[in-house]
């Protein structure tokens, strides 16, 4: 009589699962960091009709305007700028790319004059397409 083959104990190999989870974790950690760098924390106004931004849109100049103690603080990504230097950068970017559009992300508490300064430079530099950042939701008032 032949002896049956020895039964190997059933053990779950968790190493590949840990590998995959670690990869996912690192991906999300890096992605979150990138989102923070691109989009400064700003108390945006809400708008029910705000559309998802087009991912294919190229040549977009993003201006962040934050309100600090009632005064506007202008930023390109995380970098602080005076209004004059920001407008200068906007002007040279518009000269380099004729089809450039401008995304303005401003605190809801800033006055229209603070945004109008950027809009006026856009008009002067020939930038006609302007987008305003807003959170999707019902606007107040």
């Amino acid at each position: 009589m032949t002896k049956p083959p020895p039964i190997t104990p059933l053990t779950l190999n968790l190493a590949p699962m840990v590998d995959v989870m670690m990869c996912l974790l690192i991906f999300f950690m890096l992605a979150t960091k990138m989102v923070e760098q691109e989009r400064t924390r700003i108390d945006l106004p809400t708008a029910a009709e705000a559309k998802e931004p087009l991912r294919t849109e190229a040549g977009r100049f993003v201006v962040n305007i934050r309100s600090e103690n009632g005064r506007p603080v202008y930023m390109l990504r995380e970098e602080l700028h005076t209004l004059a230097s920001l407008l200068e950068q906007l002007h040279s970017a518009a000269k380099a790319d004729a089809r450039m559009t401008c995304l303005i992300r401003a605190d809801k508490s800033v006055s229209f004059a603070d945004v109008e300064a950027v809009l006026a430079e856009c008009a002067r530099s020939g930038v006609r397409g302007v987008q305003f950042g807003a959170l999707q939701g019902e606007s107040r008032g």
Binding site: K51, A123, V130, A134, L135
Partner: peptide, 10 residues
């Protein structure tokens, strides 16, 4: 990702 945009022209 919930941030959207309103487009306008000058």
């Amino acid at each position: 990702v919930t941030e959207g945009q309103l487009s306008a022209k000058l």
